[in-house]
């Protein structure tokens, strides 16, 4: 190649360093995890205690750093305990999606054309049931709860993993080391475990981070509709649900749980973006 193409395509020499987005996202996630774990040991107040004398008070009032909600519960305490719910829902939902989606994706990537095509059609259909819709369906059938939310969000996130893993698998399958393994007589399952899985693992990690953000959003939405976490389970979405009647006279009640949801979703998105840049430069900028 001569001329300008070669010049403009000249890659800027980039040291393989961890992008800033990973640090920022990771730091916020670390704070949330610390708050959730810390809440098992210590919280400013009891999550169930209602300070009847100081209902819906503001910052630094009567020992409530972030104030209290309409019933007089300590907002900071609720945020810390709510972080547990948020993280737990994410872990279970993403866990379900990754554990079911990854093998299906590898299967779709390695299978012969007919079965692969069928699997992808099923995936397309599956995609027509996004997390929130699936959660609403299961909430209608089994009643709304954190468990229902987690399972529904997890099931609805499976096809995203199938697609990503399948694309990665197809790429790995064209590589020389897979060809060599085939010539050496390795079986399909052996190739899947030894060669494909390690190579698609980075994709799964990136997808997990993005899916985590979606799971947090879905759980918050569901609890906000009053169809997720019950009245005794502190959750950021539930806090927003309980603050909604006060919207016209105390709109700032929405502030802290709203910010918490926003920060968590943003953090996992940044983490996913950064990891994608770090782990797979080919996908960067997408």
């Amino acid at each position: 190649m001569t001329g300008p193409g070669a010049l403009t395509a000249l890659p800027a020499v980039q040291p393989r360093r961890v992008p800033a987005t990973v640090w920022i996202g990771g730091a916020v996630v670390a704070v949330i995890v610390a708050a959730a774990l810390g809440s098992f040991v210590w919280t400013p107040w009891s999550p169930l205690y209602t300070d009847v004398a100081h209902r819906s008070v503001g910052l630094f009032t009567a020992g409530h750093v972030l104030g209290t909600d309409l019933r007089g519960r300590d907002v900071l305490t609720l945020l810390m305990v709510g972080a547990r719910t948020t993280l737990w829902v994410g872990v279970v939902a993403v866990g379900i999606a990754a554990v079911v989606g990854t093998p299906l994706g590898i299967l779709a990537g390695m299978a012969r054309r007919g079965p692969a095509e069928f699997l992808m059609r099923v995936t397309d259909l599956w995609l027509a049931f996004p997390a929130l819709l699936m959660a609403l369906i299961l909430a209608a059938v089994f009643g709304g709860s954190v468990t229902t939310s987690m399972v529904a969000i997890g099931v609805a996130t499976v096809p995203a993993f199938v697609r990503v893993v399948r694309a990665g698998t197809r790429q790995v399958m064209t590589s020389e080391f897979v060809a060599a393994a085939r010539v050496a007589g390795r079986s399909g399952p052996a190739i899947a475990v030894r060669h494909v899985l390690p190579n698609v693992a980075p994709l799964v990690i990136v997808q997990a981070s993005v899916a985590y953000a979606i799971a947090i959003l879905a759980e918050a939405s569901l609890s906000f509709l009053g169809l997720g976490a019950g009245p005794t389970t502190p959750s950021w979405g539930r806090m927003l649900y309980e603050a909604q009647p006060a919207l016209s006279f105390q709109p700032w009640m929405m502030l802290w749980p709203g910010l918490a949801v926003l920060a968590a979703v943003l953090a996992f998105n940044l983490l996913g973006d950064g990891l994608r840049d770090r782990l797979d430069p080919r996908l960067a900028g997408r």
């Binding site: 909604q244 926003l262 979703v265 998105n269």
Partner: peptide, 13 residues
Amino acid sequence: QLGVAVPAFLAGL
């Protein structure tokens, strides 16, 4: 990037 993270209901509120 910020827009991606804002849930529609939060924006609405």
